[in-house]
């Protein structure tokens, strides 16, 4: 599904990401872990063509992301609040995304109904603009919005940060359910090793822009990762 070829990103000569080869298969639930500055967000930004690679390229579905826009219809992402439109209400935002992804109001409403407990009654019908919601609630909106229109690739950057414990547990369930569906490739990054090992069936650890671990999740994975990061 996603292939990385000799990808390199450098700022003023400092290499921040350098991945020679990485392949993410269709239906995989892919976890990206690493310390601050390891290159997680950089990788996701490259994947969404928000920044330009210094060398190499990424393809999804054999489409070079920095040459064509054809990956957009099947890719959904939530990296940070800059993916939200502050002056819309949550519903308006969902419907807007729905329209972009060819879903009508009823489709969107059906999806929202499914995730009502995730919102915990704090999002829908509250007569508030997104900019007036708390960080955590904004995040919930952003995450659910990525599910609209059945995308084949879902990219979530640090989805667990800023969420309360209950919501974290609910989010893990959502991601696990998505991972069951072998049509959906889901990419999640996190600082939290435990969350990531729980939801991902493959984990890649980045350190200073390099892939340092690439493991299929098993019972020992968490321990292995903890040992790696305990310096």
């Amino acid at each position: 599904m996603i292939q990385v070829h000799n990808l390199k990103k450098a700022y003023n000569g400092t290499v921040v990401l350098n991945i020679e080869h990485l392949e993410i298969k269709k239906g995989e639930s892919f976890g990206l872990v690493g310390n601050n500055g390891a290159g997680k967000t950089t990788f996701f930004s490259l994947l969404l063509d928000l920044i330009q690679p210094s060398a190499g390229y990424i393809t999804t579905n054999n489409i070079k992301v920095h040459e064509s826009e054809a990956w957009k219809p099947f890719t959904a992402a939530f990296l940070d609040e800059s993916f939200l439109i502050g002056y819309l209400t949550p519903q308006e935002y969902f419907y807007f995304i729905g329209e972009l992804r060819g879903c009508n109001k009823a489709d969107v409403d059906a999806l929202l109904a499914q995730h009502e407990d995730f919102f915990n009654g704090e999002i829908l019908g509250k007569k508030k603009y997104l900019r007036d919601l708390s960080k955590g609630n904004q995040k919930k909106v952003g995450i659910i919005a990525t599910l609209i229109g059945n995308p084949e690739v879902i990219i979530l950057d640090e989805p667990f940060a800023n969420l309360d414990p209950t919501t974290q547990i609910r989010l893990k369930k959502i991601i696990k359910d998505l991972a069951e569906n072998k049509e959906v490739t889901i990419l999640v990054s996190s600082h939290d090793l435990m969350h990531t090992t729980e939801v991902s069936d493959r984990i890649v650890a980045l350190n200073k822009g390099q892939v340092v671990k690439d493991i299929q999740t098993s019972a020992e994975t968490l321990k292995e990762l903890e040992e790696f990061f305990a310096v």
Partner: peptide
């Protein structure tokens, strides 16, 4: 500008 990265990665052609 506040949500330009979203506009650029959503299913919208320029």
């Amino acid at each position: 500008s506040a949500y330009y990265s979203m506009i650029m990665s959503q299913n919208i052609s320029i």
